[in-house]
Amino acid sequence: MSGAEIFDITIDKVRFSYDGAPMHFDATIAANAITALIGPSGSGKSTLLNLIAGFETPSQGRILFAGRDHTAVAPAERPVSMVFQENNLFAHLDVAANVGLGRSPSLKLDEADRDDISTALERVGLAGKDKRLPRELSGGERQRVALARVLVRNRPVLLLDEAFASLGPSLRRDMLDLVGELQRSRAMTVLMVTHDPADALRIAAHTIFLENGCVVASGDTATMLSGKAPAQVQRYLGGKVRDAGDTIARKET
């Protein structure tokens, strides 16, 4: 994958049905930026990520990366890495192996690969922990291993499915900042699902709001999470808007 390409994602009139709930997505995710995906639970946030990653197949419509149709491409062949909320690591493999799988799915690694793995682990702050097993790591460290694998895998698109939802507030802010840094250094297109508007305000330039399996509103994050947001978004955010406003204020000082 050449780094020069602009990896925007187009979700072109995608239809999908899960447990009888019809969903209809139509959106464009900006290249080289972080976009937050918010909405009530059951609104289809994770489903949309699964469609983009290729774990689900649309019944109609297309998924395009950089203008090319990837609707029928297997997950591993897409220009995408995804980090889940949990189960990102194989519990029986050590940290280095878990990261190495991002380079070779049969774990056939040469010297250069091993160097890359060490560099990536260093980059996410896990230097020297390459022989640990996942159960010997904290929840935050485990997600850092997953991010190291994203670096080693080097795909232009990163999907985060509430990847940091189970972490405490300060740890979560650290992880978000790390994602922000990685995004800038690799010029990645990042789409992250989150429950907390503060996450979006912290690193996402754009925000998309989903409701009942449809994209209801989208725009730049500051507008979407302010008093100027569309009515449905305001209703969903409820009391959170003011808190979010406070966060903006703090961020701007």
Binding site: F55, A74, A76, P105
Partner: peptide, 10 residues
Amino acid sequence: HDRLCRQLGI
């Protein structure tokens, strides 16, 4: 493991 395997092409 299944999603992870499919994602990584294992």
